[in-house]
Nucleic acid binder design. Structure first.
Lengths: 156, 156
DNA sequence: TGAAAATGGTCAAAGAAAGTCAGAATATCA
DNA sequence: TGATATTCTGACTTTCTTTGACCATTTTCA
């Protein structure tokens, strides 16, 4: 069995029905498996992505850590679809506004959250000297980042 | 838990609803936590800044002290200050995160809204090929637009 | 009044994690 | 078997924390 698979299994074993998140020390885990610390990052990057239903957070420095949170529910799966398929590399303001309105209507986000998201992708928020294409690209990144935050909230 | 976090928690525990300020002796506190006195300054500098909603004053010499005062502004005053004065033309991610955290703490926005705002000013949301200065400028516009939305919602 | 004592402040350097990325090693597959 | 994809490693980077030596200010008291 591959090292990566062992590490993946090990981490998943730490998460039960109840326990939807684990916190670990990168160096300790690497030590335990006798591998390079960066191997842990590889495992996270290939097996604990949002697509896989996980979100990771971390902190450097003294007392640093890596936290892995499992997020599996229908709402987060729909959002993951939007993030990966629907939005793509660029999106116009009109499209974004429509998408946000739908999310509010389906109660996946509150009206307040919708208002903030609309503001973030609005023209005033993107008034730097950029081409329209760049603005659409920036809007897509912003929107995807915000939706990821919603997934995080949905069970974080 | 990190020493800095313990000290932060300790100080915050001394401030209640009505008690908006604490006065302490740097050396005593350092003694209590068994650390270097300058560690206290580090905690103040990283967790009790104006962006965090605190003002600190101190005096040296015999009978010296450090006083930490929690700033109390009305919600609308705070938002106006942030939009018109604090944020300006550019802001770093770390600074933005603090301002947002404070809004959540003061219940001016929900944790969900805070998470979305944080995402909108985060590095992944601004990963287009821009210089750091441009990112800080973009972040400022985005944040101000979102805060303006919050102001609008408070009224409407 | 002026030196000593009592505080707090600053800053640079060391320490403690985690992140990145290119390239080597290994596995898979046509 | 050779090409391609995946896995692993190590050197280097970035971020956050902690300490200690030296500095500045205020009070005390001979």
């Amino acid at each position: 069995m591959r090292l990566s698979d062992s590490i993946e299994t090990f981490i998943k074993a730490l998460m039960t029905e109840e326990e939807t998140s684990v916190e670990l020390k990168r160096n300790e885990l690497a030590e335990y498996f006798g591998c390079a610390p960066s191997q842990i990052n590889y495992v996270l990057a290939t097996r604990f992505t949002l697509d896989d239903g996980y979100i990771t957070e971390s902190r450097r420095g003294g007392g640093g850590y890596i936290r892995i949170v499992r997020v599996v529910n229908s709402a987060s799966q729909q959002l993951t679809y939007l993030i990966n398929e629907r939005i793509g590399q660029a999106i116009t303001e009109a499209e974004a506004v429509r998408l946000i309105a739908q999310l509010v209507e389906r109660k996946m986000i509150t009206p307040g959250e919708g208002g903030i998201m609309r503001a973030a992708v609005s023209a005033p928020a993107l008034s730097l000297p950029m081409t329209d294409a760049m603005k659409d690209a920036q809007r897509a990144r912003s929107l995807k980042a915000m939706l990821t935050a919603v997934v995080r909230q949905a069970r974080g």
